[in-house]
Design a protein around this nucleic acid. Structure first.
Lengths: 235, 235
DNA sequence: CATCCCTTGTTAGCGACGTTACGGTGTTCT
DNA sequence: AGAACACCGTAACGTCGCTAACAAGGGATG
């Protein structure tokens, strides 16, 4: 840890805390461990951050700094609705890559909401303002911000806290499209795409077969049929 | 607290813990306070629940028991999509009325997900199965369950953890409608519901598959699928 | 150069927490 | 009656967040 000699105490502590947080199996970090890892006495930590909550808020803000910087740097494209979509995906990617940071951000251990949460909210609000200016939004931007943000956070937290119930991110894409399609209207001049009716018909038949199983099929046949219908539903 | 004399220790502890949790400003409860409030020694608690996480899981399950019982008792109406809508609203109402119970359910302090979460998931899955059986669903029920549940949890947690950013529940209604409208299709008023819907759905799917053959199937598989669909059509 | 003060760092400790070992008490079986 | 046993409360251990008290540097001021 000799490379830390150059930093000041604040940076050393933040670095050590972020490292411990990233490696911690359960998302909790003790101030004692942070002090030992940073080579700093306990009073130093409390003089700098005042509180354990203050330290955690600072470490969350620092972790989100890079994420928000890249998001801020992403210059708005000509289609703000596309920016919305990629913003959702970036949000999900960051949550999955930094699960402990992300869960800590929405944990009750943080008494005051960290500044990063506020800034992410405002960033999304900015994109939605541009959507509204382009005439693509069907609801006021502040309301749209709450709708999109809460759904996005819900999808991310669900994947992090119940990974066995949310094994893949497919549901996130569907939820994103459902929300964004409902809040936005297509650009003028775009031709509506006809939907492929095969998945709908397959899903309907599969559900009805599950509801009352046909007597003419063996269990193995039913299973294979369900499997095929599932494949058709996702096509 | 003389009225507690009749209960056994397990009930007394759960009652005291629930009371303390409901009154606690921050969603945390100490085992010592629970033991004192219940008039029980600490070893009793650990013999009954094994762990603090076990106690919290038990208290969460108990708190959700009434909620799930009322939800289970609500007999399914004739319109499963309406059940979906009221299920969302009940979810939000419960979260707002019991904020600490709800936040605890999705807190990292609970190592194992409580049984109540699983049951709520399954209950929603059941409603969505009935929607699919009625031909009202556009995606497979398990996927729809994940979409609806994650959005619902996200809306509830957002209101609880950031009340100043989500001052009213208007966004929840819009999010609910966006999600449900995207996942469901309107009932066909012209043809209410055919007597035996399986043959119709099977015939529809068979025709569509003949129109454009799915690329993911071998010719033999397509032939067997068509044969089965024919058998279902004649049933 | 001596003095003061302010920032930094160390030690030790307080109260509260989750958890458990140990010893006493009541009950039951022979 | 006496012994074996299941049960339960007291006290304790180790760790936590946090802080008081004090020692050591280091500029600015006289």
């Amino acid at each position: 840890m000799a490379y830390r000699e150059g930093m000041d105490a604040r940076e050393k502590i933040l670095e050590a805390a972020a490292e411990l947080l990233a490696e911690a199996p359960v998302a909790d970090v003790s101030t004692r461990a942070v002090c030992e890892a940073a080579g700093v006495g306990a009073p130093m930590l409390y003089r700098l951050f005042g509180d354990k909550a203050g330290l955690l808020a600072a470490v969350v803000d620092r972790g989100f700094e890079r994420y928000l910087a890249s998001k801020r740097a992403a210059r708005p494209g000509d289609d703000p609705v596309a920016d919305l979509k990629s913003g959702w995906d970036n949000h999900m990617r960051f949550a999955l890559e930094h699960p402990n940071h992300y869960r800590l951000m929405y944990s009750p251990e943080l008494t005051a909401p960290p500044a990063a949460a506020r800034e992410a909210h405002d960033l999304l609000h900015g994109i939605l303002e541009r959507c509204a200016a382009a005439g693509r939004l069907t609801v006021p931007p502040v309301l749209a911000t709450r709708i999109v943000m809460s759904a996005n956070v819900g999808a991310a937290l669900s994947m992090l806290t119940r990974p066995e119930q949310y094994p893949d991110a497919q549901f996130s894409d569907r939820l994103r499209d459902a929300v964004l399609d409902s809040l936005t209207r297509p650009a003028e001049g775009a031709a509506p795409v006809p939907e492929n009716p095969v998945p709908v018909a397959a899903a309907t038949l599969a559900a009805r077969l599950r509801a009352d199983v046909p007597p003419a099929f063996t269990p193995a046949e039913s299973a294979l049929l369900q499997q095929w219908l599932g494949k058709l539903t996702e096509s």
